[in-house]
Write a protein that binds this DNA or RNA. Structure first.
Lengths: 233, 233
DNA sequence: TCCATGTTGGAACAGCGCTCCAGACATGTC
DNA sequence: GACATGTCTGGAGCGCTGTTCCAACATGGA
C-alpha cells in the first residue's frame, strides 16, 4: 500500500482499479454511454490498454463496477434508522436512486441492463437490501418480503429510468417543457381507435411534475404492500 | 407491390423491411444480443450491407423495430374485452409480456434500454395502452391513471427481466434449479451486518416459482391501485 | 548486483457499424 | 426497340472498437 503510493507519486497518481472506475464514471457523465472507450480511458489516464486490463477484466466488468460505485454512493446517504416511519424511509431511498439517475443519466440504462442480464451481481443485493430493510419494518409477513421488495425496486428503477430521458437534455428546464410537450402531442395524435387510453393520459404526461409523480407511484405500491400486513383485515 | 413481388421472385424472396426485421429477431433468438450483426444479417439474407441500409436507418432502429414487432405480437393475443374482470385482464396482459420475454430473452434488456433511452418510441404507448385500458376499467379516477399504469408497467418489465436470466440457461429445468441455488447460496454468504434482509430472503429466492411470484407482485400492485378507487373509502 | 515479481504502455488484430458507389433491374416515354 | 429514370442491390473499404500480446520497466529481497 504505502509502497505503491510512494512509487507512483514519482510522476502521476498511481493507477488503481479505483482510479480507473472513477475515471470511467467521469467519462460516462461527460459524454454519455458512448463516451466510455478504452481509447478515451487510456488517454485520460495517460497509459495504455494493457495497464487497464491488468486491473479490470473487460469493459463489462468496468461498466458494472462504475454502476455499483454510483449506486453505493447514492444508497450510502440513507437516512438514519427511522423505526417509526418506514414509509418515509422507503421514499428517501427511492429519491436517492432517483436523484442518482438524474445526475448520471447513463445509470438508468445501465441498471436495467445489469439487473436483467445478471441479477446475481453486486448491485441487486445492494438495492434490495436498502429497500427491503424498510419493507420488513412495515410489518409485512415474511412470505411477502420478496414480492413486496421486488415490486418497489422494479417500480423505482423503471420510473426513474423513464425520467432519465429528460436529464439527457441540454438546457434542462426550458427544453424539458418542450420535450414533454412534443411527446405529449405525439401521443395525442395516435390513432383514436388503437390508442384511446394513451391519448387520454397525454395531458397528464405534459403537465406532470417528475418527483411528485414518482412519489405518487411509490405511495401506490406502499399502499399495496401495507395491505399485506395482516392476511385479511 | 405486385411488381416488386414479381420482380424479386426471380431468384430469392424480395428484400423488405419486414423480412429484415424478421431475420433480426431470428438471429437474436438464436445467438442472443451479440448475435445480431450486419455481417450475419447480410449472410443470412444473401445480400450486402447497402441493401439493408436502404430499408433500415441504422442498427438502433433495427433493434427498435425487432423489439416492437415482438411486443406487438405478444400484446395481440390480448383476451377479448372482459368488462367484469379487469384485474384478470391485467394479469393476462402481464403474462403475455412475461412469456414473450421468456421466449426471447434479449427482449428484457432491449425493452429496458428502449424505455429508458427513448420513452417516446412506439413501444411505450403500445404497452401503456394494453395495460392502461384495463386500469381504466378498475374505476380509478382519471388523475391516477398515469401513476397506476406506470407502476404496473414498470413492475411487469422489471420482474420479467429479472426472470429472463433463467431463460438464457441452456438446460432450463435442471440448470434453473442449480442456478437459483447458486445465487441463493451467494446471497446467504453475504456479510450479516451489511445484508441482513437479503440473507433473509435468500431462501425465498431459491424456492420460488417464477410465474407464481410474478403474479403475486401484479396482485400487490393491483391492490394498491384499487385503493385509489374512491378518494378515501 | 542480480533476479523475481508485479506493473506498464504501445503495437497490432479481428470484428464492428456504416458509407460509398458502380451497376442491375423494372418501368414510363418516345 | 431504344433510351432515360428512379428504385434497389451488394461488395469494397473506412474508422473505430474491445482485446491480446509482449518487450520493457520499477521495485524489494537475496
Amino acid at each position: 500500500m504505502a509502497t505503491r503510493t510512494r512509487r507512483s507519486q514519482r510522476r502521476t497518481e498511481a493507477l488503481s482499479r479505483e482510479r480507473i472506475v472513477e475515471t470511467a464514471v467521469e467519462l460516462l457523465d461527460a459524454d454519455g454511454e458512448g463516451g466510455l472507450t478504452f481509447r478515451a480511458l487510456t488517454e485520460r489516464l495517460a497509459t495504455g490498454p494493457g495497464a487497464i486490463y491488468w486491473h479490470v477484466a473487460n469493459k463489462g466488468e468496468l461498466l458494472g463496477a462504475a454502476t455499483d460505485a454510483v449506486v453505493a454512493a447514492a444508497l450510502a446517504i440513507e437516512p438514519a434508522e427511522s423505526p417509526d416511519a418506514p414509509q418515509e424511509a422507503v421514499r428517501a431511498v427511492a429519491l436517492g436512486l432517483f436523484d442518482a439517475i438524474d445526475e448520471h443519466p447513463w445509470l438508468a440504462t445501465q441498471l436495467a441492463v445489469q439487473l436483467s442480464r445478471s441479477p446475481w451481481g453486486p448491485v441487486t443485493p445492494r438495492i434490495f437490501e436498502s429497500v427491503g430493510r424498510h419493507v420488513r419494518a412495515l410489518d409485512v409477513p415474511e412470505a411477502g418480503w420478496f414480492t413486496a421488495t421486488s415490486a418497489l425496486v422494479h417500480y423505482i428503477l423503471g420510473a426513474a429510468g423513464q425520467n432519465a430521458a429528460n436529464a439527457r437534455l441540454p438546457g434542462r428546464d426550458v427544453d424539458r417543457a418542450e420535450f414533454l410537450d412534443a411527446v405529449s402531442t405525439a401521443w395525442e395524435e395516435l390513432d383514436p381507435d388503437d390508442y384511446p387510453f394513451t391519448r387520454a393520459i397525454a395531458d397528464q404526461l405534459r403537465e406532470h411534475d417528475d418527483r411528485e409523480q414518482f412519489l405518487a407511484g411509490i405511495d401506490l405500491v406502499l399502499t399495496g404492500i401495507t395491505a399485506l400486513r395482516r392476511p385479511s383485515g
